[in-house]
Write a protein that binds this DNA or RNA. Structure first.
Lengths: 229, 229
DNA sequence: ATTACTACTAAACGAGTAC
DNA sequence: TGTACTCGTTTAGTAGTAA
C-alpha cells in the first residue's frame, strides 16, 4: 500500500473482481464500471490506467470496451485484505492488548516465588527463558487499563502448574507473553497470589528490566500482552 | 455506502478494528492512529469525527486519547466487506457470465426437441417453467463471447436427463438459468445436439422472447448466465 | 460505440495553532 | 500531553471533447 490512493484503487479492484476479472479476462467498458462504482466515466478510465501502472491489472482496449484481467499481484492484494478481515472477524481474541502502568517497588515477594525450582523449570520449558530473580511491579493507571487487564482473564494463557513443598502449597500461575516498551520480551504473571489488587501487574523477563530499560519508580511503562492463537 | 468518502472511512474502520476496537473499547489517540494510517493527526481526527457521524463508531474523548468502540453498524460494514471477499476468493465459479449474441432464425429444430414430453416435464421440475415451444438462437459476436461460453462447460449445470423413444435416443441436456436483456428469465440449453457450432447458443423461456422483447433478426442481445452456488 | 486528454471544480489533506 | 479548528495546498473527480 505505497501511495495514499492505493486504498481507493483496491476498491476499484474489488469491483473488477466482482465482475469476474480475477479469474478470467472480462470485457468491461469504462462507462459500465463507472456506473457500478457510482463515479464518472472519466474517473473510471483514470482508475484503470492507474491500476494498470500499479501492475494490478492487465488490459487490452477494444472498440467495444476494455478486456481486463486482474494480475497475480492484484489478486494477492485482494487476498491480503481478505485474510486481514478473516483474522479480525473469525478470531475469538484480539491479537494483543496493551496495558500501561507506573513502576513501583513491591515487597520483593515476587522474587521468592519465581525462583522456586518447580516454577523456574516450567518457565524455561513454557516461556523459553529463565526469569531474572525479581518482578517488575506496575500499577495500572486508568480504569481502562484495569478493565483491559480483567478481560485478559478470559483469554487462553500459558499454565504454570502448582506444586507442594514440605511446608506449603504453591498454586498454579497463568502467564502471557509480553513485550515491554516495544523493546524487551518477557511475561506477565497472573494470580501468583490471590489477586490482592486487580490494578497491579507483575512482569518477569530474562533480564533485569529496571536496569535494561533504565526504569525508576514512577515511570510509565507500556506492556503489550500477546494473546495466544 | 451513501457518500463517496465511505470507502476511505471503511479503511480507517478496518485499522480501528485491527486495534481491537470492534470487540472492546480501545484507547487510541489521533496521533497514534495517524501514524498507523500514514496520515496527519488532523486527518485522523477528522476521520474519527466523520466515522462517528456516520454511526460506525462511538467515542469518548479523554485527555489521554479517545476511547473508541466500533458500533454494531460499523461491524456490519466490515462483515459485509468480508463476505464479499470470501465469496470472490473461496468461490470456485464466478456468480454470472454475460454473453452477447445476434438474433438469427434457425431451422426450427429446437422447438421439436424441447416439446418432447420427458424434456418438458423436467424443465418444469428443474427450471420452474414450461418453455414456450421454440428457442431463441443467438450467434455469439466476438471471440471473447465464444471463449466465455466455452468456459461455462466447466461450471456446474442443471442436468436434464435423456431418454429413449420408440424410434431414437434423446441425449441429456445441460441448462443454465439466464436473464435476457436484464428483463426476462429463461435458460440456456447446451449440447442439445452435438455442438454443431460452438458460437451459437439457444435460449428458452416461459414466454415467446421475440415478441416479449420485440426482437428481430440481427438485433444484439445480452444474456446473463447465472452459475450455480 | 469506445477511451482518455485538457481544463476546471470539489474534496481531502496537512501546517499552524487554540484550547 | 491530548483534540480539532481555520485556512492555504494538494489531490481526486467531473465536463467537455478529440480521436
Amino acid at each position: 500500500m505505497a501511495e495514499r490512493s492505493a486504498w481507493r484503487h483496491l476498491f476499484t479492484l474489488l469491483k473488477l473482481a466482482e465482475m469476474g476479472a480475477h479469474r478470467r479476462t472480462a470485457k468491461i467498458s469504462t462507462e459500465y464500471l463507472a456506473r457500478k462504482l457510482e463515479m464518472s466515466q472519466q474517473t473510471a478510465s483514470r482508475h484503470l490506467i492507474e491500476l494498470e501502472n500499479q501492475g494490478w491489472i492487465r488490459r487490452a482496449i477494444t472498440p467495444e470496451g476494455c478486456l481486463i484481467k486482474i494480475t497475480d499481484t492484484g489478486v494477492r492484494e485482494l487476498k491480503r485484505l481478505y485474510s486481514n478481515l478473516r483474522f479480525l472477524i473469525e478470531a475469538a481474541y484480539p491479537p494483543s492488548v496493551t496495558l500501561e502502568g507506573v513502576v513501583f517497588t513491591g515487597l520483593g515477594e515476587g522474587a521468592y516465588y519465581i525462583t522456586r525450582g518447580h516454577y523456574r523449570k516450567q518457565f524455561m520449558e513454557k516461556l523459553g527463558f529463565v526469569p531474572y530473580p525479581g518482578t517488575l511491579n506496575l500499577k495500572l493507571t486508568t480504569d481502562y487499563d484495569v478493565k483491559s487487564y480483567s478481560e485478559l482473564e478470559a483469554y487462553p494463557a500459558i499454565e504454570i502448574e502448582g506444586f507442594k513443598s514440605e511446608n506449603r502449597t504453591f498454586g498454579s500461575v497463568k502467564c502471557y507473553p509480553v513485550i515491554i516498551e516495544n523493546k524487551a520480551k518477557g511475561a506477565l504473571i497472573s494470580a501468583l497470589r490471590s489477586h490482592y489488587d486487580a490494578s497491579v501487574i507483575e512482569v518477569i523477563a530474562p533480564v533485569f528490566l529496571r536496569k535494561h530499560l533504565n526504569l525508576k519508580d514512577g515511570h510509565k511503562v507500556k506492556v503489550e500482552v500477546l494473546t495466544l492463537p
